[in-house]
Amino acid sequence: MSEIKLTQRKERARFPVGRVILYALLIFWAVFMIMPFVWMFLTSLKTRPESMRIPIQWIPAEAQWQNYAEVLNKYDFGRYYFNTIVVTVITILYQIITCSMAAYVFARLEFPAKNFIFMACMTVLMVPTQMIIIPRFLIVMKLGWLNTFAGIIIPNLPSIYGAFFLRQNFMSIPRELDEAAMIDGCGYFGIYWKILLPLVKNGLIAFGVLSTLWCWNEMLWPLIVTSRADMYVLSIAVSSMQGQQGNNLPLQMTAGVLAMFPMLIVFLIGQKNLLDGIALSGIKA
């Protein structure tokens, strides 16, 4: 008994030191995480010479807000916003519905070859995108979808990650609920739609946010299937800026900030559900 007390006292005695180190580490890492964003934003407000001073000049003498006006007007970012939003909204709506259906089936129903189909789908996660992009492109071309929203959107719609992610959510709900509903005369679809879907709402939101982030940031595929600037999405526009304005850092960074800003908002709104949802996907693996 006395021994336990001793160790506890020792713990308490060095408590503040540990706390200080702990906070110092946490804050250090937070600064490391945030610094690139701060640098990016400040650079977007600099003049070109200011952006290349040695040693670094952190604060621009005068904030160059016209950089934003220039990128928005001259480089047609309005159009790119529109395209990216169309692509993202359609993709996430479709994915949430189809992935949750597939997830329900994989989590709950038994049928021949289920495990085979599931494992086959999972191996797809290991295939590098660069490997399949050209055959995929040929398929899209045969379908006549080049330079259309269909071409950008449809091939990225089937999300096996989404099905896997949501399956974990369904599995965390007790089966007794299904059985009770079954007795009340509910069919499989009814159970999915009326009973389970509302219960995995948080998982759906988490997946929705995650999928929004990926869809918004995707670059290689939209680039390959579009050849007209009026079909470009934001990620292409940002890397175009890097190509066109190779040594104009402020403009490049302005484009980057503009492209990232909406996602920052989406993340901040959905962060609670997202972070909890991601956590769940890992625990039940």
Binding site: I134, F137, L138, M141, L146, L223, I224, S227, R228, A229, D230, I236, S239, S240, Q242, G243, Q244
Partner: peptide, 25 residues
């Protein structure tokens, strides 16, 4: 005619995919 700027790297990527397939500009 509609003109589009495609940055250097992406320009050749797109042509190398698009030309054999007949979907190039």
């Amino acid at each position: 005619v509609t003109a589009t700027i495609v940055p250097w790297d992406q320009f050749w990527e797109k042509l190398s995919v698009g030309l054999p397939a007949g979907s190039a500009p």
